[in-house]
C-alpha cells in the first residue's frame, strides 16, 4: 500500500556557517511515502535540512527542486519550529494570524480557530498571551497554527519534545489524521517509538549527510549501515 514517490530533488545542497559545513553537500532524490521521519543524533543537521527544504535557511550552495508544483511554494508548506515562535499576541490571535494574512473573513477565521483550538486541546487558554504559555502549550499552538494553513507539506521539528505522554498521543492522532487526509509530513524526532508508530519512510542523517533512506519497515528492521543499526539500538554513533 505504501510506495515511495519522488517529492524533491536536492542538488549539491550545502549549508555553511562560519566557514564550517554543517550540512551537505547533498545530492539526493528525496522520496516519500507520505510520512517521512528524519532521524539522527544531536547536531546531525536535521533542523538544518528541514529549514533548507522549506527555504528558511539560506543555502551556501546548491538547490532544492520540488517535484510537484503543488508543494513548491511557502503557501503550500507549513513549519513547526523546534523552538516554537510565538507572536506576542493571544493564542486566538496567533491562530488567526496566518488566515488574516491570506485575507480570510472574520467568521471563517473564527470557525477555523475554534476548530483547531479544540483539536489540540487549548480551549482553556484561548485568550492567554502566547509567549507566557508552557513549553508544551506552545508546541501545540505552533502545530495548530501550522495546520490551520491546510498545507500540502508539513514540516515538524521535534513537535513533541516538550509534551507529556498523553499530549504526545493526542498530537500523533492529529498528525495521522492530516496525513491520511493528504498532507505530506516531514518530521524529526528523537523518540524512536514515535518514529516507528508514525513513519512511512525514514531519512537517517549523520554528520550533515544523508546516511541511509528507505521505507520505514526496511530501515528499522534491516538497516544497511552499521551506524544506523547502532543508532536504532540506542547506541552512540559518531
Amino acid at each position: 500500500m505504501v510506495a515511495l514517490v519522488p517529492i524533491a530533488t536536492l542538488k549539491d545542497v550545502t549549508v555553511k556557517r562560519r566557514g564550517k559545513t554543517i550540512l551537505g553537500p547533498i545530492s539526493h532524490g528525496l522520496e516519500s511515502a507520505g510520512f517521512t521521519i528524519v532521524l539522527g543524533p544531536n547536531g546531525a543537521g536535521k533542523t538544518t535540512l528541514l529549514n533548507a527544504l522549506h527555504g528558511v535557511e539560506r543555502l551556501s550552495d546548491g538547490s532544492v527542486t520540488w517535484t510537484s508544483p503543488d508543494h513548491a511554494s511557502y503557501k503550500d508548506q507549513a513549519f513547526v519550529f523546534q523552538r516554537p515562535i510565538m507572536l506576542r499576541r493571544t493564542v486566538r490571535q496567533n491562530l488567526a494570524y496566518p488566515l488574516q494574512l491570506l485575507g480570510h473573513n472574520k467568521n471563517e477565521i473564527e470557525t477555523e480557530v475554534m476548530d483547531w483550538v479544540g483539536r489540540v486541546g487549548l480551549n482553556g487558554v484561548l485568550d492567554h498571551f502566547a509567549p507566557r504559555l508552557s513549553g508544551g502549550e506552545k508546541q501545540k499552538l505552533a502545530l495548530a497554527r501550522a495546520l490551520i494553513q491546510k498545507p500540502k507539506v508539513l514540516f515538524l521539528d521535534e513537535p513533541c519534545a516538550n509534551l507529556d505522554g498523553r499530549s504526545t498521543r493526542e498530537i500523533e492522532t492529529v498528525l495521522s489524521e492530516v496525513n491520511t487526509a493528504g498532507t505530506s509530513v516531514i518530521m524529526t524526532t528523537h523518540d524512536l517509538g514515535q518514529a516507528r508508530r508514525l513513519a512511512s519512510d525514514v531519512v537517517f542523517l549523520l554528520n550533515g549527510q544523508i546516511h541511509e533512506t528507505g521505507l520505514a519497515p526496511h530501515v528499522f528492521e534491516a538497516p544497511k549501515t552499521p551506524e544506523a543499526k547502532a543508532f536504532f539500538q540506542g547506541d552512540i554513533v559518531e
Binding site: 522549506h54 507549513a78 519550529f81 515562535i85 507572536l87 506576542r88 494574512l101
Partner: peptide, 28 residues
Amino acid sequence: ELWAEYHDLLISLNTSNRQRVLTLIWDG
C-alpha cells in the same frame, strides 16, 4: 530584536514586506 525572534516564522508564512513591517510595528 523582534525581527530576530519572528524571522523564521514570518518567512515561513510567506509574508510580504508590507505585512512584515505591519506585524512588527503592531507587536512591538
